[in-house]
């Protein structure tokens, strides 16, 4: 029984790792080698020059698109934590006559998956003149009703004694939030932050719609363009894919604890 379990898990693990193996094999070989009629399991000689060729290819905006992706992901992560954290705290802890109205407006947006409204959002963002613009890539993704809702649920269960102690020390809502609540919620912020970063880095539909000039492409849009048009050679395409995954592999290895917590906290997020 135990052996069968490990056998099944090992076979599944091999299947799960095949795509990673293929990215490396195809990205570090020569094109002749990977298009040969007989399968080569590993390039006879690893071609590190492929990196130099990829980054110096003027047709592939590799550096530019990686920087764009990084800027968008970092801004969206911190922007969401800032805006949704504040709003979630206000909704959970500050008594106000119309707080419930605002809460219902937030909850109502949970019924509408963001991807379905890309046409309406594009209409508004293009009116603002934000097409192919960093603002258009970053700002519409900041106002996640779902993240705000999760923060509210979390702050509802935050120990009140800590806040009351801060109040006695003469801190208002603002001071209490920044000096007591946030420092004591680092794990939760990290969990939601890691999820926001991964989601932002991997998102495709919105950048495809809004980043129309090559200069504003994120790395996903760049990869997709070369994939669908097949205008660059296969080896470079796979190497570009490998490069595009690296930041997230780093996140996975370094922050897996928060990532797993984030998944279970947000399980509900698509």
């Amino acid at each position: 029984m135990r052996v069968a379990r490990y056998l099944a898990l090992s076979m599944a693990a091999v299947l799960f790792l095949i795509p990673f193996y293929l990215v490396l094999r195809n990205g570090l070989a020569t094109e002749q080698e990977i298009t040969a009629p007989t399968w080569t399991f590993w390039p006879s000689e690893i071609r590190w020059e492929n990196f130099a060729e990829l980054f110096s290819n003027p047709a592939v905006p590799m550096v530019r698109s990686m920087v764009n992706s990084l800027v968008v992901a970092v801004l969206q992560t911190f922007g969401q934590l800032l805006l949704c954290g504040l709003a979630g705290y206000g909704l959970a802890r500050i008594p106000y006559r119309y707080a419930n109205v605002v809460l219902y407006l937030v909850i109502a947006t949970l019924m509408i998956p963001a991807a379905v409204t890309f046409v309406p959002t594009f209409v508004v963002v293009s009116t603002l003149g934000w097409v192919s613009d960093l603002r258009g890539l970053v700002i519409p993704g900041l106002f996640s009703g779902f993240t705000t809702f999760l923060f509210r649920q979390y702050f509802l269960n935050f120990p009140r004694e800590l806040e009351e102690a801060a109040r006695i020390d003469g801190l208002g809502h603002w001071g209490t939030y920044w000096r007591v609540v946030v420092p004591n919620s680092k794990g939760f912020f990290a969990a939601l932050g890691v999820i926001a970063f991964v989601t932002s880095w991997n998102q495709f539909l919105w950048p495809l719609v809004i980043a129309q000039d090559q200069d504003s492409w994120t790395v996903q849009v760049a990869l997709s363009t070369f994939l669908t048009s097949q205008s660059i050679d296969v080896v470079q395409l796979f190497l570009a894919a490998a490069v595009s995954i690296t930041p997230l592999v780093v996140v996975f290895v370094a922050l897996q604890r928060f990532l797993v917590r984030g998944v279970t906290e947000t399980g509900i997020k698509d």
């Binding site: 693990a13 799960f16 991997n202």
Partner: peptide, 12 residues
């Protein structure tokens, strides 16, 4: 290992 593919985008 089973969770690692989440690091990949649909494009990749």
């Amino acid at each position: 290992v089973f969770f690692l593919p989440t690091a990949c985008s649909y494009v990749v």
